[in-house]
Computed example of a mutant assay.
Amino acid sequence: MSCVMNMSYVMKKIGFLILCGVIAGIIGCFESEKKYDFLLNSEQGKVSLKDFEGKKLIVYFGFSYCPDVCPTTLALISNELKKMKNNEILLLFISLDPQRDKDIKATNEWLRYFYANSTALLTQDENELATLARNYGVIYKKVPLKDSALEYSIAHSNELFLFDSKGRLFQKISDLSQKSLHNALERFLMLDQQTNQ
């Protein structure tokens, strides 16, 4: 009799632990998605990740005064999307240099030279930028440039964040070789077709 009671108690305990695990997983998933959200300045005013729901997104952190890494990456993205005959993906460019990129119209002109369907986003201040970069796992640092009219540059990690049309992170791409990016974008573009089948 006590053995049956103990077994019943153990089963209830296991059921409770499984339920707690499921709830924790759901909360954890929600929290991890929430950390990528933002409220940033754009040419159209303040926007959040939710404002772009229904669109596939590439989020990229960089700055318009970047001499090499950012232009190379933007050109690579543009070339790959042109090859795939796709102009539906929206590129969100989050500036790591809100001080010099504050003329958002000029920053957008520079950005759209690489890829027409893109928009620049600016944080309010350095603290907001540091928090957002930390949430995305982006590393950056202002580097003083002696004897240069630029005064400083920004060293930063170089990765892309692909978000599906529901605002969920699909993939983070750190290997930005042409082949790796091509394969990742191909999978990304097929995403809706796979879920509709």
Score class of each variant (00 low, 15 high):
Met1Glu: 14
Cys3Phe: 08
Val4Met: 07
Met7Gly: 11
Ser8His: 10
Ser8Arg: 15
Val10Phe: 11
Met11Gln: 12
Lys12Thr: 06
Lys13Arg: 14
Ile14Cys: 03
Phe16Leu: 12
Gly21Asn: 02
Val22Tyr: 02
Val22Asn: 03
Ile23Val: 10
Ala24Leu: 07
Ile27Thr: 06
Ile27Ser: 04
Glu31Thr: 06
Glu31Phe: 03
Glu31Val: 05
Glu31Arg: 13
Ser32Phe: 07
Lys34Gln: 13
Lys35Ala: 13
Leu40His: 08
Leu40Ala: 12
Asn41Asp: 07
Ser42Trp: 06
Glu43Cys: 05
Gln44His: 13
Gln44Leu: 14
Gly45Tyr: 01
Lys46Asn: 07
Lys46Gly: 07
Val47Glu: 15
Val47Phe: 00
Lys50Gln: 15
Phe52His: 15
Phe52Glu: 09
Phe52Pro: 08
Phe52Ile: 09
Glu53Trp: 08
Gly54Lys: 04
Lys55Pro: 00
Lys56Phe: 02
Lys56Leu: 00
Val59Asn: 03
Asp68Ser: 14
Cys70Gly: 04
Pro71Arg: 09
Leu74Ser: 02
Leu74Ile: 00
Ala75Ile: 11
Ile77Lys: 01
Asn79Trp: 01
Asn79Asp: 11
Glu80Tyr: 04
Glu80Pro: 00
Lys82Met: 01
Lys85Thr: 01
Lys85Met: 00
Asn86Pro: 00
Asn86Met: 05
Glu88Met: 02
Glu88Leu: 06
Leu90His: 08
Phe93Glu: 00
Ile94Phe: 07
Ile94Pro: 00
Ser95Trp: 11
Leu96Asp: 10
Asp97Ser: 14
Lys102Pro: 01
Asp103Glu: 06
Ile104His: 10
Lys105Ile: 09
Lys105Pro: 03
Lys105Ala: 15
Ala106Leu: 10
Thr107Ala: 12
Asn108Ile: 04
Glu109Arg: 08
Glu109Met: 09
Glu109Asn: 14
Trp110Met: 06
Leu111Arg: 03
Tyr113Met: 04
Tyr115Asn: 04
Ser118Gln: 01
Leu122Gln: 12
Thr123Gln: 05
Thr123Ser: 11
Asp125Ala: 08
Asp125Gly: 12
Glu128Asn: 12
Thr131Ser: 15
Thr131Pro: 00
Leu132Gln: 11
Ala133Met: 02
Gly137Leu: 11
Lys141Met: 03
Val143Cys: 10
Pro144Val: 09
Leu145Asn: 06
Lys146Leu: 07
Lys146Cys: 04
Asp147Asn: 14
Asp147Glu: 15
Asp147Gln: 11
Glu151Ile: 08
Tyr152Pro: 06
Ser153Leu: 08
Ser153Asn: 13
Ile154Asn: 12
Ala155Lys: 11
Ala155Asn: 15
His156Met: 12
Ser157Val: 04
Ser157Lys: 03
Ser157Ala: 05
Asn158His: 05
Asp164Cys: 06
Lys166Leu: 08
Phe170Ile: 03
Phe170Glu: 03
Gln171Met: 13
Ile173Tyr: 05
Asp175Gly: 06
Ser177Thr: 04
Gln178Arg: 12
Gln178Ile: 03
Lys179His: 06
Ser180Arg: 01
Leu181Asn: 02
His182Glu: 14
Leu185Ser: 01
Met190Asp: 15
Met190Ile: 01
Asp192Arg: 13
Asp192Gly: 04
Asp192Ala: 07
Gln193Glu: 13
Gln194Tyr: 14
Gln194Asp: 10
Thr195Gln: 15
Asn196Val: 10
Gln197Asp: 14
